[in-house]
Amino acid sequence: MPPRKNPTIRQKRLGAELRKLREGAGLSIDTAAQVLECGKAKISRIETGLNGIRAAELKALLQAYGVTDDRLGQALADMAREGRRRNWWNRYGDVLSGGFADLIEMESKADALHSWETILVPGLLQTPEYMRVLFRRGRLGVPDDELEEHVRGRMLRQRVLGDGERAPELQVVLYEAVLHGRFGGPEVMRDQLAHLICMAQRERVTVQVLPYTTDSHRGVNGPFGIVGLPDPESDVVRTETAVSTLYVEDDDQVAAYKLMFDQLRAAALGPGPSLNLIRSLAQRL
């Protein structure tokens, strides 16, 4: 299998688990390579997620590592199979960063998505014109000839919210500053706020606003998102820096972010008053 330029989180997890099993069995990379009759470099690439692994190869390694837990074996086989499957975002590999592709993959599997935003409307709720402004002026600095590809990629990402009962539950808390932004001018912002109102009335979407009048809150360190997966122990937190997207997977840290989000929701206006505030601000534009 050809090496991946940007291994997904699923592939990284699979590789990390295989490395842990190998080391737990007291085996070296040399021994694992002998099991598969391959070079050491291939084992290293598998364990870092750069190479996929075939079903027969996985079975051979698990047997060599002394794995007898059928549930663990099946879970790893599922991860390996998912890593070989091509999804719609694979077509956008030239314009989607590895971190963003990871996010899309996780969102497609999620039961719940939580987002705390301090400056921007979250990507799942953005209008195309709002996206264009951000892509031109944001940290990505997208060239004009790639702009529409980025917009199409994000619009396809938003389809996750339109999948009926299979759609994840989206809970968003916005600091009031998000609503006062002037990205693209009054018309773009008016349409964006109207879209927020429309989306917030969907059954599985909740939008709350944390007003300026709140004297203190737990979100002062910046925006973050939580991807709630079917297995709660696999939940992931997304944060962003000026140049990259970072993921937090440590259980204790993820739990801390979940508590922080619950506290932000409790401090924010309820869904009804939040919508009233958004409507009021939209009418002033």
Score class of each variant (00 low, 15 high):
221 N>T: 09
228 G>S: 07
183 F>I: 04
247 Y>T: 07
210 L>S: 13
197 I>G: 05
174 L>P: 09
201 Q>K: 14
196 L>Q: 01
213 T>K: 14
180 H>T: 03
191 D>K: 13
183 F>E: 01
233 E>M: 11
192 Q>V: 00
202 R>P: 08
192 Q>S: 08
192 Q>G: 07
177 A>W: 02
247 Y>S: 08
184 G>N: 02
249 E>R: 12
186 P>R: 10
200 A>E: 03
241 T>L: 02
246 L>K: 09
253 Q>M: 12
201 Q>P: 04
225 G>V: 10
250 D>P: 04
171 Q>W: 15
216 S>F: 09
215 D>G: 10
178 V>Q: 08
250 D>A: 12
186 P>M: 01
170 L>N: 10
208 Q>W: 01
200 A>R: 02
171 Q>K: 13
226 I>N: 01
234 S>K: 12
193 L>I: 00
220 V>L: 14
216 S>I: 05
185 G>A: 10
203 E>R: 15
237 V>C: 08
171 Q>E: 13
171 Q>L: 09
252 D>V: 08
170 L>D: 09
181 G>V: 00
179 L>C: 07
174 L>K: 04
200 A>F: 00
235 D>E: 07
204 R>M: 06
187 E>W: 03
209 V>N: 04
209 V>A: 03
205 V>I: 12
206 T>P: 08
218 R>A: 15
246 L>P: 04
220 V>C: 06
254 V>H: 07
190 R>H: 12
248 V>A: 07
204 R>H: 13
196 L>M: 03
216 S>M: 07
175 Y>R: 05
216 S>Y: 12
199 M>F: 00
170 L>P: 09
223 P>F: 00
193 L>W: 00
180 H>N: 09
176 E>H: 02
169 E>M: 11
174 L>E: 10
199 M>Q: 15
183 F>D: 00
214 T>A: 15
252 D>M: 09
216 S>N: 05
171 Q>Y: 10
172 V>I: 05
202 R>M: 10
199 M>G: 04
208 Q>Y: 02
209 V>K: 01
213 T>A: 15
196 L>K: 00
223 P>D: 02
244 S>Y: 00
185 G>P: 08
171 Q>T: 15
232 P>C: 08
217 H>V: 13
238 R>S: 13
179 L>R: 03
204 R>T: 09
222 G>P: 06
195 H>D: 06
204 R>S: 10
181 G>C: 05
191 D>T: 06
227 V>G: 02
191 D>H: 13
224 F>H: 03
172 V>K: 05
253 Q>S: 13
193 L>N: 05
195 H>C: 01
220 V>A: 10
171 Q>I: 10
177 A>K: 08
213 T>R: 15
220 V>I: 14
202 R>E: 14
229 L>A: 06
222 G>L: 03
197 I>C: 06
232 P>K: 03
194 A>T: 01
248 V>Y: 09
189 M>P: 06
204 R>C: 06
189 M>I: 01
232 P>L: 07
245 T>C: 02
246 L>T: 11
175 Y>K: 04
216 S>C: 07
215 D>T: 14
187 E>F: 00
177 A>C: 05
225 G>Y: 09
249 E>D: 14
250 D>C: 02
254 V>L: 07
172 V>T: 10
